[in-house]
Computed example of a mutant assay.
Amino acid sequence: MSDAPETRPCPDCASPVRAANQSFCDGCGAFLRWDAPAVATREEPEAPRATTGPEEVTTPLPAVAPEPEAPAPEPVREAPRTPEPPASDHPSAPAPSPHTVARSLLVPVPEDRPSEPAVAAPVLPARPEAARPAVRAAEAATPVPGGTPCPACSLANAPGRHFCRFCATPMVPERLSTAEGPYAGRRPGLARDRSRWIVRALIAAGVAAVVVGGVLGGPPAARAVQDHFATRVPVHPVSWTASHSAPNQEPKLAGDGYSNTWWGTGYAGDSEGQYLEAAFAEPTDLLSLLITPGSSKNTTQADGQATPRTFDLVVKDASGEIRVSHHRINDGGTQRVDLRVRDALSVRLVLRTAWRADPRKQVAVAELEFFGRSVT
């Protein structure tokens, strides 16, 4: 038998150790001498030795069993676990020694960890773009043999259609009933009233005729046009005279501005031929006058006097020419009488007939107002 002692296998990979004093394993490189106890060897019977002296008896020491290994305290942080060595088939393989546990704490062993998913790079938010609709080219409609042609696109349509199947144009012209009017939703047509244009044309023609007549007719015609459009202002006489007056009914009362005072002829009946005259301080262009007949504006009074019915206006101008005009007014109420006399110096009202003439009443004039051209 061989004298070489047997050694225990490597505690990590269970590879046999070739020498008892070997520090590292040849298979995995594990440290084998970490304060480990002496390697237990298997005893074999020794051969008898020859002795010359008394035989020495040697008593072998009893084999000491290895102490059970205390579990290592768990750290707060879980340390990487060392894979357990495969079980050895050798019946004498001892339990892991303390140096193996210490080495597992110092030398980390890689573990099979699941691979973490890759983190995608950050992407800025954007507005999603809607899918664009696909545009298809319009296909030409197939004409119908013997159909009715469209009045717009001339495509033949099947008989009985109301609208063209290609351009939707009505196949039959629309006809509206004048009795029922347009259908709902239809905008009514614009009414062309030509009468207003005729009126406007006549007015324009009249204005043009007046202007042209004034220019071609000479100064009198031009003055007539100016008098028609002139601004009227009150003209006050400086003196009043009359052919005859009743007591307390003086001529100046006809121009005092009050309608409840009046001038009276002092004669009963029509007082035909009696007059009332107003004179101006300087030549005045008279356009019209206002006359209030009777003793008051209210002609329904029982004691009201008679009022002028017809009379003559005799106007004397600055050149000494006398112009006479005949006028007729109603019974009662303020009324307007046109004169249109240039450079007038005096105006005389001569009575002809009267309203409500009575032997117990006299003809009265409450107010007589004159209006001329504005100097501005």
Rank of each mutant, 00 (worst) to 15 (best):
P16M: 09
R18P: 09
N21A: 14
F24N: 02
G29T: 02
W34E: 14
T41D: 05
R42S: 08
E46M: 07
A50D: 10
T52Q: 12
L61M: 04
P62M: 04
P66A: 08
P68N: 07
A70F: 03
E74P: 05
E74S: 10
E74G: 06
V76S: 11
P98D: 08
H99Y: 09
T100Q: 14
V101F: 11
L105T: 13
P108E: 10
V109P: 00
R113Q: 09
P114T: 13
S115A: 15
P117H: 07
V119G: 04
V123H: 05
V123E: 06
V123G: 03
P128N: 05
A131F: 11
P133F: 10
V135H: 07
E139A: 15
S154T: 12
L155S: 02
L155Q: 03
R161P: 00
C164V: 03
R165V: 01
P170Y: 00
M171K: 01
M171S: 01
A179E: 14
G181N: 11
R186L: 14
R192C: 07
D193L: 13
R194L: 12
R196H: 12
V212Q: 03
G214C: 08
V215H: 06
A224K: 05
Q226K: 13
D227R: 14
D227Y: 09
V233K: 09
V233Q: 09
P237D: 04
S239M: 09
W240F: 14
S243W: 08
E250D: 13
E272S: 12
A279Q: 06
L287Y: 00
S288E: 15
I291T: 03
N298M: 11
N298W: 06
A302E: 12
D303G: 13
D303W: 15
Q305T: 10
R309P: 00
F311H: 06
D312P: 05
S319K: 14
G333V: 07
A344N: 03
V347M: 06
L351Q: 05
A354C: 11
P359A: 11
R360L: 14
Q362E: 15
V365N: 01
L368E: 01
G372R: 00
R373E: 07
R373F: 00
S374H: 07
V375F: 04
T376S: 13
